[in-house]
Design a protein around this nucleic acid. Structure first.
Length: 649
DNA sequence: GCCGCGTCCGTTTTT
DNA sequence: CGGACGCGGC
């Protein structure tokens, strides 16, 4: 008998190998930062296939689209499968690799008809949901100033992601207070809008599949048979409902493999709960737990600093501590700048002085607002950069095109009609539109009627074209026929940029060109709703850019760079001072700092500004308490006298 | 119906 | 400070 290991297993350490080889039954892997958990997930998937498990029986759920795509590419390479343009998660006989939302979408598209879910639904993003709520408030004659649409949406979203239905919410909170009554009323209207527009929101993409599997045993069995091996990444950041979905899918076999790090739980504000992880072995008796604490990523200095930071948290597994065989490396640099602009230009200067390739440098910050000063500094220093998180899909012109496309597929979508009719503006406004929706078409002036008819004609023509055209050609036609192209060309330089953005959208759509007609277009639309602005691969132009990466700490999760700058280390900013007392969570902020620090492989630089501008006014800021958590022996200051000043012993 | 101007508000973090 | 929204004049 041949006892030698295949090369892909030899590369792993004992614990990692144990994780890969634990094929049946529930397994939880508690992995520290930089411990090679991605390698474990990928290798395990590959190993299962080598063992004869059909690839399409394996489901892997990742946290981001980017992680999904990378894993899919890696496995395709290992299996020597050449992926074509088909972007569906399970294409080419590969495992089904997607985010929870991508999985939910697949389940609803495939099995949702039994619950009356339309075949072509569109997905509402946060802004869509917000305007739907705003509309609901208007109908209810509630002043949005009294209760903000955002707050209502947050409450609805929380209820939904806990698995609570609208009637249950009414029952429980309907009489509690004025506030909750408004929430219940707005929720009712909101659901009506969703239904009318054949739309689902992000929470629906999880909630409805759960309901589907709970209520329909036949579907549950079908799904359990379809996926016999389940891999879940970042399990500490799953919600109650996502946990339940996993459980429903795992079924009796429970060939369930989850990877998690409690110290990197940074999404509780998005209704993630570490309860799923803490109760894992109770939910799944016979769980095998494997701890990966060896860090392959960072220098000893960085690993040691990370340990010092995270061990201050009370709410964690105190035995878990990262170790590394890597060299000590350089000390951590702390720099205090005068204000945000000086901080930014100092960072830019340090980047150009360093010898790391620009692709190996990341600039991290707590809030998106901080990116502006940094962007300007990099522009000024002529250092190429990529800015993640500029909400591409939030841009007006992009939303306009998507609205047009959605309207063409589903002429009942009121919100999209209002948007489309105004882009470009064609002399039809709210009043005219209101008359149409109310069915009072005869009241229209002849000139208005002509305008409306020509608009509707364009929509119809595009509708016909949508039946056969590949998505990218369809989009091109939309841009032309809607009149957007002509209008933008008239606008000069800014219009050119906008046209560029729209064309980028066309490039995205071409990924679905192998599925022409409504199916492909609708898949593209769902893609863009689920696409993340944090993922440069979702944007062809952004992906081509090379350079330093600017992003929030949240967006940096899972990534690694030779040199990492963590900026804005000031009290109130990082840790962030929350408005709502009850939401303040110092330990989560510290975990976030831990995530930031552990992104660095070789050099870590922490910066702050003594004066920070908030809403246009300057404030003095105190250095972040987090800076004091790192032992001085690991730190070097550029100016010696800065030390006591910043650390404030 | 459109556009310009004034006011008000916000900022965590995002699939 | 800057984006979103509303009001009022054209």
């Amino acid at each position: 008998m041949d006892n030698s290991l295949p090369p892909y297993l030899e590369r792993l350490n004992d614990r990692q190998r144990e994780a890969v080889l634990a094929i049946n039954g529930p397994v939880s892997v508690l992995a520290g930062a930089g411990s090679g958990k991605t390698a474990v997930l990928t290798t395990r998937t590959y190993h299962l296939i080598r063992k004869g498990i059909p690839a399409e029986k394996i489901l892997a759920v990742t946290f981001t689209n980017k992680a999904a795509r990378e894993m899919r590419e890696r496995i395709a390479r290992m299996l020597d499968v050449h992926e074509g343009r088909d972007r569906r998660p399970g294409a080419y006989g590969l495992p089904f690799i997607a985010t929870f939302h991508g999985l939910g979408r697949e389940l609803l598209e495939t099995y949702g008809s039994i619950m009356g879910i339309p075949r072509h639904f569109c997905v509402y993003d946060r802004d869509d949901s917000k305007s739907a709520i705003r509309k609901a408030l208007k109908e209810l004659e509630v002043d949005p100033k009294e209760i903000s649409p955002a707050a209502i949406l947050a409450r609805i979203s929380k209820a939904k992601s806990e698995g609570m239905t609208l009637p249950e919410f009414r029952e429980k909170f309907g009489r509690e207070s004025f506030r909750t009554r408004i929430v219940a009323e707005a929720w009712t209207k909101y659901e009506e809008t969703l239904k009318k527009e054949k739309a689902l929101d992000f929470d629906d993409l999880i909630m409805l599949p759960v309901r589907l599997l709970e209520r329909h045993e036949d579907v549950r069995e079908l799904v359990q048979k379809r996926f016999t091996y389940l891999h879940i990444d970042e399990y500490q950041d799953t919600s109650v409902l996502q946990g339940r979905l996993v459980q429903l899918m795992a079924g009796e076999k429970q060939n369930l493999f989850v990877v998690a790090d409690v110290d990197q739980a940074i999404y509780t504000w998005r209704n993630a709960t570490i309860e799923n992880l803490l109760s894992f072995s109770e939910t799944y008796p016979g769980t095998k737990t494997i701890i990966l604490e060896h860090n392959y990523r960072s220098t000893k200095t960085i690993v040691e600093a990370a340990n010092q930071i995270i061990q201050i948290n009370q709410n964690r597994n105190k035995d878990k501590r990262s170790v590394t065989n890597n060299p000590d490396g350089e000390r951590i640099t702390i720099h205090a700048a005068g204000n945000a602009e000086e901080e930014a230009s100092w960072v830019a200067r340090e980047v150009s002085r360093s010898s790391f390739p620009l692709e190996e440098v990341a600039i991290l910050y707590r809030t998106n607002a901080q990116s502006r000063a940094l962007e300007e500094a990099f522009l000024h220093a002529q250092i190429p950069y990529r800015l993640l998180g500029t909400r591409f899909f939030d841009r007006k012109e992009v939303k306009d095109v998507l609205a047009w496309a959605r309207l063409v597929l589903e002429p009942d979508r009121e919100a999209d009609r209002i948007r489309a009719v105004q882009s470009p503006s064609r002399g039809i406004g709210k009043v005219t539109l209101g008359k149409i929706t109310a069915g009072r078409i005869e009241e229209l002036r002849p000139s208005d009627r002509a305008k409306v008819e020509s608009f509707e004609k364009v929509v119809r023509e595009l509708g016909d074209a949508a039946e056969t055209l590949p998505p990218s050609a369809f989009l091109k036609l939309v841009i032309e026929k809607s009149g957007m192209e002509t209008a933008l060309l008239k606008e000069g330089e800014e219009g050119q940029d906008r046209l560029e953005n729209i064309k980028e959208l066309g490039a995205l759509a071409s990924r679905h060109d192998e599925t022409p007609g409504r199916d492909g277009i609708s898949a593209f639309l769902a893609d863009s709703a689920l696409a993340s602005d944090q993922d440069e691969m979702d944007r062809p132009l952004e992906a081509k850019k090379k350079g330093v990466t600017l992003m929030t700490v949240h967006a940096a999760k899972g990534l690694e760079f030779d040199m990492v700058f963590v900026t804005g280390l000031e009290e109130g900013l990082f840790p962030h001072e929350n408005m709502a007392e009850e939401e303040r969570d110092e330990e989560e902020e510290r975990r976030l700092f831990y995530v930031a620090v552990t992104r660095a492989k070789k050099r870590l630089v922490l910066t702050l500004a003594r004066i920070r501008r908030v809403y246009g006014t300057d404030f003095f800021s105190e250095p972040s308490q987090f800076l004091r958590d790192i032992d001085p022996s690991l730190v070097s200051f550029l100016e010696a006298d800065e030390y006591e000043d910043v650390i404030q012993i």
